[in-house]
Design a protein around this nucleic acid. Structure first.
Lengths: 222, 222
DNA sequence: CGCATCCTCCATAAATCCATGGAATATTGT
DNA sequence: ACAATATTCCATGGATTTATGGAGGATGCG
């Protein structure tokens, strides 16, 4: 009873999953996968990794049970193994931000000076239903297709400058992207404000929206 | 906007907290700390670690923001930095168990063949209030003192064989310990059953009890 | 069947992590 | 101030991890 070697084996097994969360690049991959499934080389490009390096990290995630794969012809699609994985990832970020000194600094250095606070999820829902705001998804189109806030328009942030005319001129815009630490919505709001539009961000993004079990629509833009 | 170096810095900061979860020994330390604060050398002994090794792991946990310290004279007491840390630890274990093949095997190898399922928290509360069962805490006394289920008796598992007479002979016993993966209650139930007592375990333990915001009593046994 | 594509496996060198023993630091009591 | 205790810091060797290039497997197409 209570064999120390077996205890160590059990905790090492937990640690094996923890180890998957111990590399920044692997967390970037999880972040992308939280938006929807992707092929290896799409992930490698999006995360700025060499293909073989990305593959190795994905193997690590897979052995830890955090991701699963699906083969479709010659490509392999990776996806999160479950909602609980997204929840674990989100909680890790929250705990890090709450208790670890460097995170807040790194966050503002990356996202830029927040300017105004974002609006909350419930507030967004209420104001969107009342027709007071337009909801704008600024992620890449594949991520929009994989799941977005119902009724949101899709304009990826790189195209926003050119397509700004598609937004109603006199309605406030609420932009959102992947999650609390995603730059895209920050950039979009800065751009829109610079062009004289009223725009704010959702305070987090699709990751947190899904975890809150709010409605999600799928499919390409109309 | 969206400097890749800054993005890497932010994700590396998250990974720094993840890295703290990547060693089985550190998870054992977190497991102990989830029961209440402890000094360095108490932790080292309880986890079966060399003092300097334990100290090094605790520094890692501290830099990751998962634990905090309090000095009392010549000793330093470590504790979890917050409830969210306990939640993160619990979620890591759950995700590992759900998605990683080896965990279930390691679990049963360590805990022994479960025998009957444990009772749930709500069921325990109801049956204890109805006086149908006696609740028995089999953790070390310091952990009992740091927080236990209200009304529970405290008999550490090593003393249980000698003190079995303190338990009412004709009432069913529900034993609990640290959490879902703690051996103590398993051992206690096996011992009690071998002595002809009706005994079952709580299906998890104090860690999950606290996270469920159920009532907790503190202080030594009367 | 041969070839192209997508991905995984293997080998390697640089960097990092882990356990441990001995030295250094901080606090308490004499 | 000195000795004793508890903990952290430092140096070291051994093991693991990371990024990367090249070889190997699987699938689909002509």
């Amino acid at each position: 009873m209570g064999d120390p070697a077996r205890k160590t084996a059990l905790y090492d097994a937990f640690a094996h999953t923890g180890k998957a969360l111990s590399s920044g690049k692997r967390l970037e991959l999880l972040d992308l996968l939280a938006q929807g499934e992707r092929t290896v080389d799409a992930l490698a490009k999006a995360a700025g990794l060499n293909l073989t390096t990305a593959s190795a990290h994905l193997q690590t995630l897979k052995q830890a049970g955090l991701v699963a794969t699906r083969r479709e012809g010659v490509r392999i699609h990776y996806r999160l193994a479950g909602d609980d994985v997204a929840a674990l990832y989100a909680l890790l970020r929250r705990v890090a931000q709450t208790h670890q000194a460097g995170v807040e600094a790194a966050r503002t250095a990356y996202l830029g000076d927040d300017g105004p606070e974002g609006v909350g999820r419930e507030e967004l829902l209420a104001r969107a239903q009342a027709g007071e705001v337009v909801v704008l998804d600024v992620r890449p189109t594949e991520e929009y297709a994989a799941g977005h806030i119902p009724g949101a328009l899709s304009i990826p942030v790189e195209e926003l400058a050119d397509r700004i005319a598609e937004l109603p001129a006199d309605t406030e815009v609420v932009a959102y992207c992947r999650g609390e630490y995603c730059v895209l919505a920050h950039d979009a709001v800065r751009l829109l404000n610079a062009r004289g539009r009223r725009a704010v961000r959702l305070s987090d993004g699709m990751l947190e929206w899904r975890l809150a079990d709010l409605p999600v629509a799928t499919g390409d833009a109309a």
